[in-house]
Each structure stands twice: as structure tokens, then as C-alpha cells.
């Protein structure tokens, strides 16, 4: 394997790994709070569920970016993976960083916002969507922006060689 391909794979790996770690931590934080409330108020399960799963989206964004890189590298085509230059490898690695970092940090902070929303829902269930979910979605926006930048670079910013 040449150095360019190694860089591209590091990029794909980072996108999936870092966003995935962020989501795992975020869901962990929100999940702990939700189980605390549910142990006393199991009837609030429906309201809690959306706030627990929200920080999980970043992991999917990271996976999507990684999958797109592998697709563009023709991993799944009959001709096999394409050969890329070192410069192209760096470009792919750079493209993966927005979703990797935005995913990591936004998922953790979204988990904290969701935990706050879950606690508020324990006392004020009518505010679950208005404040709990809406505030968490505002954090989500920055993960989406990270994903968009990654996708723009991968789809429009890189001149991919055609498979031989």
C-alpha cells in the first residue's frame, strides 16, 4: 500500500472513530441521567428516548463520511481500490477532519445538554420538547456543518482518479 492510500484510510478511520467516540460518550451521559429519572418515573420513557439517542447521530455522520471515502476509493468496485498520490491522500485526510472533530466535541456537549433536558423533564415534562430537544438540536447543527464541509470537500473539492 502506498503512502497516499494510508493517509486516506487514516482519514476514513478518524471520521468514524472520533465521531463514534463522541457519540458513545454523549449517549453515556444522557443515558445515565435518563435511567436515574426512569427509575422513579418509568412513564417518562418516551420523552427521554429522543434525548438519549440524539447524541448518537454524530457517530452516523462519521460513518457516512468514512463510507463515502471508501466508496470514492472504489473499495467496493470490481476493479478494486484505485491508486492515489500522496497529495490526494493528504486532501482526503484533511477532508475527514471537520466531521471527526465536530462530531467528537458536539456529541459530548450534546449529551450534556440532553442530560440537562432530561432532568428538566423530570420536573417539567411539558418542556421536554420545547427546551430539552430544541436546545440539543442546536448543538447538532454544528455536527451537521462539519459533515457538510467534509462532504463538499470529498465531492467537489477533490479531483478523484477514475478506476482503471
Amino acid at each position: 500500500m502506498d503512502f497516499g492510500m494510508a493517509l486516506a484510510l487514516v482519514g476514513a478511520g478518524l471520521a468514524a472513530l472520533m465521531a463514534g467516540i463522541g457519540s458513545a460518550i454523549g449517549i453515556g451521559i444522557a443515558g445515565k441521567s435518563a435511567t436515574g429519572v426512569l427509575s422513579e418515573k418509568p412513564e417518562r420513557y418516551g420523552q427521554m428516548f429522543i434525548m438519549v439517542v440524539l447524541p448518537g447521530t454524530q457517530g452516523f455522520y462519521g460513518f457516512l463520511a468514512a463510507f463515502l471515502i471508501m466508496l470514492k476509493l472504489n473499495f467496493f468496485g470490481p476493479e478494486g481500490a484505485i491508486t492515489i498520490t500522496t497529495t490526494l491522500g493528504w486532501q482526503i485526510l484533511a477532508a475527514s477532519l471537520p466531521i471527526a472533530f465536530a462530531g467528537l466535541f458536539s456529541a459530548i456537549h450534546q449529551g450534556k445538554v440532553c442530560a440537562g433536558g432530561i432532568l428538566m423533564t423530570a420536573k417539567r415534562p411539558e418542556m421536554a420538547f420545547k427546551a430539552g430537544v430544541v436546545y440539543a438540536v442546536m448543538v447538532e447543527v454544528y455536527a451537521v456543518l462539519g459533515l457538510l464541509v467534509t462532504m463538499f470537500i470529498l465531492l467537489k473539492g477533490i479531483n478523484w482518479p477514475t478506476p482503471v
Binding site: 451521559i29 445515565k32 441521567s33 435518563a34 435511567t35 436515574g36 429519572v37 427509575s39 422513579e40 418515573k41 450534556k112 442530560a115 432530561i118 432532568l119 423530570a122 420536573k123
Partner: peptide, 17 residues
């Protein structure tokens, strides 16, 4: 905040009600 206490803090928030 001390994030080790997520479960405990949420549980007492429910108990307070």
C-alpha cells in the same frame, strides 16, 4: 458538574417531585 453523578442527580431530581 461531576459527570460521574449523572444517574444519582437525575434520580434525586425525580424524587424531589
Amino acid at each position: 458538574d461531576d459527570w460521574r453523578y449523572g444517574y444519582a442527580a437525575a434520580r434525586v431530581r425525580a424524587l424531589q417531585t
